[in-house]
Amino acid sequence: MVDVIQEIDAGQVAVRLAAVRERIAAACARAGRDPDTVDVLLATKYVAADQTAKLAEAGIRLAGENRAQSLVEKVGQPGAEALRWEFIGHLQSRKVPEILPLVSRIHSVSSDSVLQRLERHADLARPELDVLIEVNVSGEDAKSGIAPAELAGVLERCPVPVAGLMTMPPHAEDPEDSRRWFAALRELAGEHGLGVLSMGTTQDFEVAVEEGATVVRLGSALVR
Rank of each mutant, 00 (worst) to 15 (best):
D3K: 14
Q6G: 03
D9I: 13
L17F: 03
R23D: 08
A26T: 15
T37A: 07
L42K: 01
T44S: 14
Y46H: 15
V47W: 13
A48P: 06
A49R: 15
A49K: 12
A49M: 09
T52C: 06
G59S: 05
G59T: 03
G59H: 08
R61F: 02
E65W: 11
S70P: 07
K74F: 11
V75T: 14
G79F: 12
E86Y: 07
I88R: 03
G89F: 12
R94M: 04
V96Y: 05
L102G: 00
I106W: 08
H107E: 10
S108P: 14
S110G: 13
D112C: 04
V114C: 15
R120W: 05
D123T: 06
D123E: 13
I133M: 15
A142K: 08
I146L: 07
A149M: 11
L151N: 01
L155C: 13
E156F: 02
P159D: 15
V160D: 02
G164F: 03
M166I: 03
T167G: 09
H171L: 14
D177Y: 07
F182L: 05
A184M: 06
H192Y: 12
V196A: 13
E206N: 04
G212M: 03
V215N: 02
R217I: 01
R217C: 07
A221T: 01
L222C: 10
L222F: 12
